[in-house]
Simulated scan of single mutants.
Amino acid sequence: MTARNVASDLAPRPAQNVAPDLAPGFASNAAPDLAAGRDRSDGVGADLFREALGRHASGVVAITAEVGGAPVGLTATSFTSVSLAPPLVSFYIADSSTTWPRLRLARIFGVHLLATDQADLAARFADRGADRFGPPTAWRPSEEGVPLIDDAIAHLICDRHETHAIGDHWLVVGHVRRALLNRRREPLLYHQGAFGGFAELP
């Protein structure tokens, strides 16, 4: 996996603030004994939990919607499939997200599976101070009005199916009404605070 470090405000996996401040290696040199990282009253310690989840490589998506005549969007690494029948997908978004108050108003949203060369776009959509839909972001509205990001490897147009508060995050479940595929591109991945892609094994 080729990687590029990124400092960003990603919409994280559940209970994980995907952050650039994770240090490599476990907090304890005694690999099988992680008792030092355990809070007996509330489970594992937050820093160790965040580091452990950061070791899970995940795909990277951009979530977009049109709210009040303006596009909104963010980067998420918590995207997953839920069901084939009906076709359901989900992602998590932090309760502290500055985008969530607007995104939660959307009844239809898009999930865009990003390609390897879209790391800059993923970082821009994770930056709270960025103009996410301004240049150089290339996008167009779908027939439903959802902003479609150019060159993503797949677009899923979803009706919002369910929304639940879980811990310090919101779980958003979408019912996929339409899918558009680009089969000629490779996926962008996120691992230990860096974006990257697949490398062929020898």
Rank of each mutant, 00 (worst) to 15 (best):
Asp131Gly: 05
Ala138His: 09
Val111Cys: 10
Trp100Ala: 04
Thr98Lys: 12
Asp120Met: 02
Asp127Tyr: 01
Leu171Thr: 12
Gly174Asn: 11
Thr116Lys: 09
Pro101Asn: 02
Arg128Pro: 11
Leu148Gln: 13
Trp100Met: 04
Asp168Trp: 02
Ala130Met: 07
Gly110Tyr: 01
Ile157Val: 15
Ala122Phe: 01
Gly174Asp: 10
Ala122Leu: 01
Gly110Pro: 06
Leu114Glu: 03
Ala123Thr: 10
His164Tyr: 12
Glu144Pro: 08
Asp127Gln: 10
Pro101Val: 02
Gly134His: 03
His112Asn: 05
Ala123Met: 01
Glu162Trp: 06
Val176Trp: 05
Gly145Gln: 07
Phe109Arg: 02
Ser96Arg: 14
Ile108Ala: 06
Gly129Tyr: 00
Arg177Ile: 14
Pro136Tyr: 00
Thr137Arg: 05
Leu103Lys: 06
His169Arg: 09
Asp95Gln: 15
Leu114Ser: 05
Gly145Cys: 08
His155Phe: 03
Leu171Cys: 12
Ser142Phe: 01
Thr99Gln: 10
Leu105Val: 02
Val172Trp: 06
Pro135Gly: 01
Ser97Val: 06
His175Arg: 15
Pro147Cys: 04
Arg177Gly: 12
Ala154Leu: 14
Ile153Cys: 10
Val146Arg: 09
Arg132Thr: 08
Gly110Arg: 04
Ala106Glu: 02
Pro187Gln: 08
Ala106Phe: 00
Ile108Thr: 13
Leu148Arg: 11
Val172Tyr: 03
Leu181Ala: 13
Phe125Thr: 07
Leu113Asn: 00
Gly174Val: 08
Ala165Ile: 09
Thr137Ile: 05
Gly134Arg: 06
Ala126Arg: 06
Arg178Phe: 07
Ala130Lys: 09
Ser96Gly: 04
Pro135Val: 05
Arg132His: 12
Asp117Arg: 09
Leu181Ile: 13
Gly174Arg: 11
Leu103Ile: 01
Asp117Leu: 02
Ala106Asp: 04
Leu180Asp: 15
Arg160Glu: 15
Trp139Arg: 11
Asn182Asp: 15
Val146Gly: 08
Asp151Thr: 13
Ala122Ser: 05
Thr98Tyr: 00
His155Asp: 09
Ala138Gln: 14
Asp151Gln: 15
Arg183Phe: 07
Asn182Pro: 13
Val111Gly: 03
Trp139Ala: 07
Arg124Tyr: 01
Pro147Trp: 00
Ala154Met: 14
Ser96Thr: 14
His164Ser: 15
Arg107Met: 01
His169Ala: 08
Gly145Leu: 07
Leu181Val: 14
Trp100Arg: 04
Leu180Pro: 11
Ile108Glu: 11
Phe109Met: 03
Asp117Ile: 03
Gly129His: 04
Val146Thr: 15
His164Gln: 15
Gln118His: 03
Ala152Thr: 13
Leu121Gln: 05
Ala126Asp: 05
Pro135Lys: 08
Arg177Ala: 13
Asp131Asn: 12
Arg185Pro: 12
Gly134Asn: 06
Asp127Asn: 14
Asp120Gln: 07
Pro187His: 02
Ala138Asn: 10
His161Gln: 12
Asn182Ala: 15
